[in-house]
Design a protein around this nucleic acid. Structure first.
Length: 152
DNA sequence: GCCAACGTTGGC
DNA sequence: GCCAACGTTGGC
């Protein structure tokens, strides 16, 4: 089993949006970065847990845990001209972009803030803490996972 | 809103 | 294949 971190701007899609979904499940759509896509396509397996991270907001940080409930398949928004994620280079034969389905497992009672992550020993290597890191899907080690859960 | 860091695009 | 220009991200 592998551990992950999924980043989203809460003004676009927050953990509360996910909580409001029927079945508390959503497809992680709109990823348009090859490295992030490859993590979803090649790395994320059914049952893998992932942190839900809020970025670009007043209090950036980890707000909960989701679980992969369906492995990678073509991102329908890439093929939909009406979608803001539409990619004219994507075709049904070569969909280019993928999504996974994730289900809300737990919303934390409080946000584990970015500042707190930075101040915690053992998390220095996390992708999210690297300067200029913009990947929306990144792997987390088991140790990092447990370290973060222990902060709660 | 600023701005640094980064990925992508496209001319050559 | 290089690299400048451009657009986007995301913390502050």
């Amino acid at each position: 089993m592998a551990f992950w971190l999924l980043k989203s701007e809460p003004s676009v899609y927050s953990i509360d949006h996910l909580a409001a979904e029927e079945k508390k499940t959503t497809l992680w759509e709109g990823v348009r970065n090859y490295q992030a896509r490859n993590f979803m396509r090649d790395g994320m397996k059914k049952g893998d847990p992932a942190f839900f991270y809020h970025s670009n907001c007043p209090e950036p940080g980890i707000v909960g845990v989701v679980k992969v409930v369906r492995e990678a398949y073509p991102d329908p928004t890439a093929l939909d001209p009406a979608s803001k994620y539409y990619d004219p280079k994507a075709t049904p034969d070569n969909p280019r972009w993928v999504v996974v389905d994730v289900k809300l497992e737990k919303k934390f009672k409080r946000t584990v803030t970015l500042a707190e992550l930075r101040a915690t020993k053992g998390l220095e290597k996390m992708a999210i803490l690297q300067k200029g890191s913009r990947l929306s899907v990144t792997p987390v080690t088991e140790k990092e996972w447990e370290t973060i859960l222990a902060l709660l």
